[in-house]
């Protein structure tokens, strides 16, 4: 446990433990992207407004562009790279984003998918207003959101099927 101004931290990212030496002023987004090569988390605004840098920290959605890496010592982080199934297959939400063509330029997609997973973990049967409410911290400039909302609706329906082997929890899906 970090108690003073030491710079060594341990991050568990997508199930893998990393010991990292960071400056106190390093942002989580830059450590994920530059140190760990996980470039799926995007810089979009740097001020917590667009949601492109969304990651899960200890299972909760957070904005990596306004999070200090040192403050994440000992925590579990899941990024978009960590949500495919262990066998490499896509998570149902990813499948539906593809199937519904909810993806255009793709820059908001990682954050959107993580928020969709967070929603379906809390609320497996969301209404359309609940879906829109949950992703309102994530800006998409291309789609007008309809494709994204449809994809989340379909993913919810698909994950609710009893036969679905895919668990709804993105965190558990991490390797």
């Amino acid at each position: 446990m970090l108690t003073s101004c030491t710079n060594a931290i341990i991050l568990t990212v997508n199930g893998d433990e990393h010991m990292l030496v960071v400056e106190p002023n390093e942002l989580l987004i830059n450590v994920l992207r530059n140190e760990l090569g996980l470039t799926g988390s995007k810089y979009g605004c740097g001020t917590g407004q667009c949601g492109a840098c969304t990651v899960l920290i200890d299972g909760e959605p957070a904005l990596a562009c306004v999070t200090l890496a040192v403050a994440c010592d000992g925590k579990e982080i899941v990024t978009i790279e960590g949500i495919a199934r262990p066998d490499g297959g896509l998570h149902p939400i990813q499948e539906e984003f593809l199937g519904e063509n909810a993806v255009q330029c793709g820059f908001c997609t990682p954050g959107m998918i993580l928020m969709a997973g967070d929603l379906l973990k809390r609320n497996p049967h969301p209404t359309e207003p609940e879906i829109r409410h949950h992703i309102k911290g994530n800006i998409c400039r291309c789609t007008g959101y309809n494709g994204i909302v449809r994809a989340i609706q379909h993913a919810a329906a698909r994950m609710a099927e009893p036969a679905a082997a895919d668990g709804p929890d993105l965190v558990k899906e991490a390797r």
Partner: peptide, 20 residues
């Protein structure tokens, strides 16, 4: 399904800002 979709939904698409 769009051909670049797989990379985009898995966070592995490489934009210019991701290049190193």
């Amino acid at each position: 399904r769009r051909k670049d979709g797989l990379a985009k939904v898995t966070g592995t698409e490489t934009y210019a800002s991701d290049m190193e």
